[in-house]
């Protein structure tokens, strides 16, 4: 009742930890068996090693948190030779997140990662708010996002998902642009740009000044965007943004998602992913649903039905 087949990702269930919140799995692997996960979205890989931003890199906010890690990672080569090698022992497909400063970086990293046997699909991070160079323009200008998608698609041997930024005025336009460019799926949403200022120091709390807002506070925004986009594209959506429990997963499916990713909640409860997976069947039974897929997009027609039944 939970298995989901998405392009490149044959999943036992629709739940995966979100990129950036789970590193490459080792730390959480000490707490539970990673085989229980539907997939694993690994931390963003860049062509070169990146140290990331100065600290403080995180700050709590009501119902959420801001982060400005700055894509710290050991570079694609080490990720392939060390991290992905370690993940081979698990029967869990990998969604490999990719970031870069310029198109060539993305293309290089994508080509390398798509050749790795346990990488089921790529996730193009065109929406990281925390890197100064280029990053965000890939995520806010539809033509540039489309061009990048096309170029990555041309070299990748596995399906390509594009992770969309919510920091745009027309999310549907972005989604359609990358779909037309050949994207096999969408991940949405990335974090919302935010900021916190300390009253004592009268300065921004984050060293990077601004950061990405995540957690339950952004869930309504994510639900709205998945709801809108899913009705305008035919490719599947991995929904994310503030998921904390099985009910939240159902809500994303009702909005139109085909799978989900859990981010910030891993910090609150490191066992949250297995717990959600365990809780889902009973919840589906209560809803008289035999497979979670049946719930996909069920909210779309709700309003029309009410008005036409008058």
């Amino acid at each position: 009742m939970l298995n989901i087949a998405l392009p490149g990702l044959n999943m036992k269930n629709p739940v995966m930890p979100a990129s950036g919140c789970f590193a490459f799995g080792k730390e959480y692997g000490e707490l539970y068996d990673l085989n229980c996960l539907g997939a694993i979205a690994i931390k963003a890989a860049t062509k070169e090693t990146r140290f990331g931003n100065p600290t403080p890199r995180v700050a709590e906010t009501p119902g959420g948190m801001l982060n400005a890690i700055g894509l710290q990672n050991p570079g694609v080569e080490k990720i392939i030779n060390e991290e992905l090698k370690w993940l081979e022992s698990f029967d869990t497909p990998i969604l490999a997140n990719i970031a870069g400063k310029e198109t060539n970086d993305y293309v290089y990293t994508a080509e390398q990662l798509s050749k790795v046997p346990n990488v089921g699909a790529l996730e193009l991070n065109i929406s990281c708010p925390n890197v100064k160079e280029g990053g965000i323009t890939f995520g806010t200008v539809p033509e540039i996002a489309a061009e990048l998608t096309e170029k990555v698609k041309a070299v990748s041997t596995v399906p390509v998902y594009v992770k969309l930024s919510p920091n745009v005025s027309d999310i549907v336009g972005m989604a359609k642009a990358v779909e037309e460019a050949g994207a096999d799926g969408l991940s949405m949403i990335n974090t919302l740009m935010g900021m916190r200022i300390d009253l004592k120091t009268q300065a921004p709390v984050l060293a990077n000044k601004m950061g990405g807002l995540s957690g339950p506070a952004i869930k309504p925004v994510a639900i709205r965007m998945v709801y809108e986009v899913s009705q305008h594209v035919t490719i599947p959506i991995i929904g994310m943004g503030g998921i904390q429990d099985a009910e939240d997963v159902i809500e994303f499916f009702l909005a139109g998602a085909s799978a989900v990713a859990v981010g910030t909640a891993n910090f609150v409860d490191p066992l949250v992913c297995p717990k959600i997976i365990e809780d889902l069947p009973a919840l589906l039974e209560k809803m008289n649903v035999s497979h979670i897929d049946e719930l996909k997009g069920r909210s779309w027609g709700a309003c029309q039905k009410t008005s036409s039944s008058r």
Binding site: A23, K26, E27, Y28, E30, K43, R57, N67
Partner: peptide
């Protein structure tokens, strides 16, 4: 963030 080495908040 996580305090177990996964989120890279405290490097």
């Amino acid at each position: 963030g996580c305090a177990i080495g996964a989120c890279f908040a405290c490097t």
